[in-house]
Amino acid sequence: MEQQATNLMANILLVEDDDDLAELVLMHLKFQGHKVTRVARCDDALTIYQQQAFDLLVLDRGLPDGDGLDICHHLRQEQNWTPVLVLTARDSEMDKVDGLEAGVDDYITKPFSVLEFQARVRNILRRVNQVSGSPTADAETNETSMNFGLLKITPELHQVSLDDRDVTLTATEFTLLKFLASRPGRVYSKDELLGHVWNTEHSGYHHTVCSTINRLRTKLKHPSSEHRFIQTVWGVGYKFQPYQ
């Protein structure tokens, strides 16, 4: 376990105004080997982001000067794809959907299990660092890329391009795309995707899969083509379909 924590050691920004909860989260993140900076306001978070780079942002929503999601919105508008984990008491389905649509990578509601929180952090950082995996013979490949006509995926560089145009993806979006593209035409259910990409078997997170799929489709839409690389197989799940 110590070796795993060392391999995934990260610089984390915690945005939480509850002092007791912040101390608990700080303790467990540091136990995992991470460096943690804590602030309690949206404006402080945005200011410190201009001063240094972080590997993960853990944020509350109900902050003294606004909704923590505003931080995520700002980062995504600036094309900053630092992973974001929301830790909040807002537990309605719509709140979770709002968070996922804003571009967060995961969403945990209070009260929460410390073990689950640690696992979610590890999973996000693992997705960020994940570069292994070999495409099948259905794709034209070399050691570093997966080529599907207009679409090129380069796992080792964590890059995606569509018709020679760079496509910026979050760590979760990239991991999902690479997983689906590794077996073109193979249909995966939401439960299978949750297990392989999010490392969870909890069916309550089906909306997470749907939101991530929708964001990927938007980012992979070619202005002169109606082709969808990620297609829905109704009643079954999703598949990656190379450009014909």
Results as ranks from 00 to 15, higher is better:
E2H: 10
N7E: 14
N7H: 10
L8F: 09
A10D: 07
A10V: 06
A10P: 07
I12W: 05
E16M: 12
D17T: 01
L24K: 10
V25E: 04
H28A: 03
H28Q: 12
F31N: 11
F31Y: 12
Q32A: 12
G33M: 07
T37A: 13
T37F: 13
R38W: 03
V39I: 13
V39Q: 01
A40T: 14
A40Y: 02
C42F: 00
C42N: 15
D43A: 11
D44E: 15
T47H: 02
T47E: 05
Y49G: 10
Q50T: 12
Q51N: 08
F54D: 12
L56S: 10
L57D: 02
G62F: 00
D67A: 05
D67F: 01
L69M: 09
I71R: 02
C72D: 01
C72M: 05
L75S: 10
R76F: 03
E78P: 00
E78A: 14
Q79L: 14
T82C: 13
T82H: 07
P83F: 03
L85H: 06
T88M: 10
S92E: 11
E93I: 12
D95N: 09
K96V: 09
V97T: 12
V97C: 02
E101K: 14
E101S: 04
A102P: 02
G103R: 03
D105N: 13
D105G: 08
D106I: 00
Y107I: 04
I108A: 08
K110A: 10
K110G: 14
K110H: 06
P111I: 01
V114I: 15
L115R: 11
E116G: 10
Q118I: 04
A119E: 13
V121P: 09
I124S: 01
R127H: 05
R127G: 07
V128A: 07
Q130K: 07
Q130E: 05
S132K: 10
S132H: 06
P135K: 00
A137I: 14
D138Q: 13
D138P: 07
A139T: 08
T141Y: 04
M146I: 03
N147M: 09
G149V: 01
K152R: 11
T154C: 10
E156T: 08
L157T: 08
L157F: 14
S161P: 03
L162D: 05
D163L: 13
D164Q: 14
D164Y: 02
V167R: 07
T168V: 12
L169H: 04
F174T: 07
L177P: 11
A181L: 00
S182Q: 13
S182N: 12
P184W: 00
V187W: 01
D191Y: 03
L194N: 09
L194F: 06
G195Y: 07
H196P: 05
V197R: 08
W198L: 13
T200S: 12
E201L: 13
H202C: 10
T208G: 13
V209D: 06
V209K: 07
V209M: 04
S211A: 15
N214Y: 01
R215D: 05
L216P: 01
R217S: 10
R217N: 15
T218L: 13
K219F: 02
K221C: 11
P223N: 04
R228F: 08
R228E: 15
V233K: 15
V236F: 03
G237P: 06
G237S: 08
G237L: 04
F240C: 12
F240V: 05
P242K: 00
Q244D: 11
Q244M: 04
